[in-house]
Design a binder for these strands. Structure first.
Length: 303
RNA sequence: CGCAAAUUGGAGCAGUUGGUCAGCUCGUUAGGCUCAUAACCUAAAGGUCGCGGGUUCGAAUCCCGCAUUUGCAC
């Protein structure tokens, strides 16, 4: 059971290892400006591989289809709905979840984004039994992944996918032969990774350079961190940390391929942006089309 | 049929009382300067101004339709 691109990769890794009887995913949803009915990545992949797909609107009440299949094991990954107790008790080997953090850290829907945004140096994958709450079940196994200073959301996700596949393949046999372990989570050590909201995407220049830098890379390539300049939305995808000084939010330097904006303790140099109505471009290109001098001294996020 | 903006040489842009309007900043190619250079100088190539209609003596510039991209909403 899963929905996202990440979950799709997990499914891909086990598809030839075990007999996947049924794939459960979120219903097709209306996406984007055109409100096109789009199936989830998991559904698309499963259909392509001739696996039956079930997409209940509400799994709490609509799960008879799953009971019919009589699964030995249920594996979920970023499914998006809470699984009812009846279903949790159904498979004899249990219901396990693949979560992209080192639980009990970063419980919730956006563990990868938050790991980078919080400036962590490592995160990882946890495989756990599910219970009736969000990411609170007993841990079976976990593995650590390092976060490099130049990782962004995409690169870290790729690393985690590799890690998750390996860990799952290692774990599955132990579940089947009963040698797997089971460790309770320490609730007092728990932290939470809430899903990213619009206000989480706004860059706050009154914070430290490193925090701004982390936010930008945590949201690259999507949905993108942003700030406003002369009332226009500017999304930022890549940046570097600099040492300039100035009032937070003020543009203090124009480089050949970057714009330096003052933060609380330094300067963030944005390198790749997207303006309203435009495509993602390098700041170098952006600077080719405008009068550079007009930018100096502009204070961002005003108005 | 959610709201809105954009579409000009390889890139980013300028260009509306419609008539030198095809231009700027880069890039590219060739040559030069230099110990050397991503720095500087000179020259050149490169555009059916998104597509299709319409108005007009004449449209990148006005009107209608379509496509694509993007912001917001969802």
């Amino acid at each position: 059971m899963g929905t996202s691109e990440f979950a799709k990769e997990i499914l891909k890794s086990i598809i030839d290892k075990v007999d996947v009887a049924l794939v459960v995913s979120q219903p097709d949803s209306l996406v984007g400006r055109k409100q096109v009915l789009t199936p989830s990545p998991v559904k698309t992949f499963a259909t392509l591989n001739n696996i039956e797909v079930f997409t209940p609107q509400n799994i709490k009440t609509d799960f008879s289809k799953i009971e019919e299949v009589q699964p030995d094991l249920i594996v979920t990954c970023a499914y998006g709905q809470i699984i009812p107790k009846t279903l949790l008790d159904l498979p004899k080997l249990g219901c396990i979840n693949v979560h992209a953090s080192l639980l009990p850290k970063l419980r919730g829907g956006a563990p990868i984004h938050r790991a980078i945004m919080d400036g962590l140096e490592e995160t990882g994958i946890t495989i756990m039994y599910m219970d009736e709450h969000m990411d609170t079940g007993d841990v079976i196994d976990k593995d650590t992944v390092k976060i490099d200073l130049d990782d962004n959301l995409d690169s870290l996700t790729q690393k985690l996918i590799v890690c998750a596949k390996a860990l799952l393949i290692k774990t599955l046999p132990t579940l089947i032969d009963g040698t797997s372990k089971r460790t309770k989570q320490s609730d007092s050590d728990a932290t939470y990774a809430n899903i990213i909201k619009k206000e989480d995407e706004l860059i706050d220049f009154s914070r430290k350079t490193r925090e701004v830098y982390d936010k930008i890379r945590a949201l690259d390539p999507a949905p993108g961190a942003y700030f406003t300049m002369n009332g226009e939305v500017v999304k930022v995808y890549s940046s570097e940390m600099g040492l300039g000084k100035g009032t937070p939010g003020e543009i203090i330097n124009i480089y050949k391929d970057g714009i330096g904006i003052a933060t609380q303790d330094g300067e963030i140099i944005v390198k790749e942006i997207k303006l309203a109505g435009k495509n993602r471009i390098k700041v170098r290109d952006y600077l080719n089309g405008i009068k550079r001098d007009n930018l100096l001294g502009v204070v961002c996020n005003e108005k």
